[in-house]
Design a protein around this nucleic acid. Structure first.
Lengths: 141, 141
DNA sequence: ATAAATTTTAGAGTTAACTCCAAGTCAAGA
DNA sequence: TCTTGACTTGGAGTTAACTCTAAAATTTAT
């Protein structure tokens, strides 16, 4: 029914230190304490941790995540703010993905270039290769 | 022919502080100095800055970028290392994109949920909606 | 019952990547 | 020439997100 901090650490891949830090920062306001003061995590808390991971991994700072949790705790009056937050964050993620895909093209070019350079044992020679120069132009134009 | 640090700051969106910091960290070993000690950036330096931005924005720490630059400076003997670096980094970026797309599904679910919740003025009611519950199952199963 | 492992707290320390400051030098326009 | 703005350095300060320490309490295993 409940999980110790160590169990949650194993489940999530976070350390116990990090979990306590998150709680201190207000990211886990729903975790209960046992009579003797030990944290007891519920499945609902694991759900929150999954959401925290999702937002954190997509670039939201802990402060932003805390804002969301504070809005949640404030109840239905903050539903519009929460919707707006997710919509804006979605746009940011999509922008990120686009940028990543663009950067990937540049990396692909470098891989092609360095494959040829390794083959020839010389970077300058590889840069003079027609096909490689053609691809360079396509990307950096 | 050459750009001052302020001009480069405008071109790149970095601050002059950051540019000096990058140089201090060994990321700009090709920038020249004028007789009186002013930095003079070339178009080639701008190319390096673009590559630095690409690697940094895709999650490579400055130390990793410096390693690449050091390998470059060491000459053709390090071509295989550089190729390997780009190949590994490409794999990491692709993994990132996949993860982002997955996270995006969760965010999309939240948007759907909160749209309904705003409509109803109540989050719990929205969670009981059939269509929303169906989508939740699809994602969190 | 006892030993070993886990958890508690407050608070200090770390790392990456900036960001700023002071005091002095350099450059461009009126 | 004078002033104003940009640039120089070394070094200190900041921020986010951990990461660790120590001493005490609790829980689990034998």
């Amino acid at each position: 029914m409940g999980y110790s901090i160590g169990e949650v650490a194993k489940k999530t891949g976070l350390t116990t230190h990090t979990l306590r830090y998150y709680e201190k920062e207000g990211l886990l306001p729903f975790v209960h304490k046992s009579g003797s003061g030990l944290r007891v995590f519920s499945d609902n808390d694991l759900g929150w941790l999954a959401m925290i991971e999702c937002l954190k991994d997509t670039g939201m700072p802990l402060k932003g995540i805390k804002q969301y949790i504070d809005w949640f705790s404030a109840g239905d009056a903050t539903l519009p703010q929460r919707l707006e937050m997710f919509q804006k964050h979605k746009a940011k993620i999509q922008e990120q993905i686009k940028q990543y895909q663009n950067h990937l093209k540049k990396i692909d070019f470098k891989i092609k270039l360095y494959k040829k350079a390794v083959e020839l044992g010389n970077l300058n020679l590889a840069m003079q290769d027609e096909e490689i120069e053609a691809q360079r132009q396509k990307i950096y134009k």
